[in-house]
């Protein structure tokens, strides 16, 4: 006890020491097991590939240059397009859901819970659910064949559509919840005031609801876009070899292709995309007061 107290007395001599002593262990862990690895990866992306698949200590920019190749550019473009598309679709479809949640009254808790559950359920399991539905012998095809609407099974899986569906299915809750949080804070008297002043429903939405929900929209879009950008499982399981996204490229380089530096470079291309998105988000959030995560 005496030892303990003297430790506390020393730690608290300065305000900053007290704070740092609590923060330090975790900080150390995060630096060693997060920051350092990321730095190492960045470093190795500028190294040459070793003959047997390792890393050779020779500086080169070849891996980044390689991205100018149309093959890789198309992967980048595809990833970007699908991520943006999925985000947009989630926004269009998720916004009404968020509105319903915010206005649900006593159903609110149940409905919110029902949105949270898919969010935390294993993504692997959920993706398999989609496979179960979409594969040639899957439920959708079975039903369609049985009712005679089609003669042959539709190729639903291993298409761009399947990947997009998977992305939306996976990340929709991430879009809904922040928007719901924003809408919940909306003061109903604002809408009443607008109505009294003569605004029709459409005007009330665009002039009052939408601007005030923007922090949630921004947060939700960020939380959907980023995982989509770096997604790997979706395109792996639902897209097959033909629908490669950057995440698959990275994984590929670290396993079969054994070109670690190139994989690292690809990782950094993804990270740059993430950084750009986050910066845009932060900038938007700082401009509009009273919002954000």
């Amino acid at each position: 006890m005496r030892v303990r107290r003297s430790i506390f007395r020393v730690i608290n001599r300065r305000e900053s020491w007290a704070g740092w002593s609590q923060v330090a262990p975790t900080l150390l862990f995060l630096v060693v097991f997060f920051i350092v690895p990321l730095a190492m990866m960045f470093g190795s992306s500028w190294m040459a590939r070793g003959t047997y698949g390792g890393i050779e200590w020779r500086f080169t920019a070849e891996h980044y240059v390689r991205f100018a190749d149309p093959l890789y550019l198309s992967i980048l473009a595809r990833t970007l397009a699908w991520s943006l598309g999925a985000t947009l679709f989630c926004l269009l479809v998720g916004y009404p859901v968020a509105w319903t949640l915010a206005n649900a009254g006593r159903w609110k808790n149940v409905l919110v819970f029902l949105v949270i559950v898919p969010l935390w359920t294993s993504y692997l399991v959920r993706t398999f659910a989609m496979i179960f539905l979409m594969r040639d012998s899957g439920l959708i095809n079975t039903l369609l064949l049985k009712t005679g609407l089609i003669q042959e099974p539709l190729e639903l899986l291993y298409t761009p559509g399947a990947v997009m569906a998977g992305l939306v299915y996976g990340f929709l809750p991430f879009m809904v919840l922040p928007i719901y949080t924003s809408l919940e804070k909306l003061d109903p008297t604002l809408l009443e005031a607008a109505e009294v002043l003569g605004a029709r429903p459409a005007a009330r939405f665009w002039k009052v609801i939408w601007p005030l929900s923007l922090p949630g929209v921004a947060a939700g879009s960020l939380l959907t876009f980023i995982p989509a950008l770096g997604s790997y499982l979706t395109s792996d399981l639902l897209g097959g070899a033909k629908q490669m996204m950057i995440g698959n490229l990275v994984q590929n380089q670290f396993t079969t292709a054994r070109n670690w530096p190139f994989g690292a470079a690809a990782s950094f291309v993804v990270m740059s995309g993430v950084l750009v998105a986050v910066t845009l988000y932060l900038r938007m959030r700082d401009k509009a007061p009273g919002g954000g995560l």
């Binding site: 990866m41 994989g263 990782s267 993804v270 990270m271 993430v274």
Partner: peptide, 8 residues
């Protein structure tokens, strides 16, 4: 992204 975490 998870893939970046894992790789690094």
């Amino acid at each position: 992204p998870e893939i970046v975490c894992g790789i690094s």
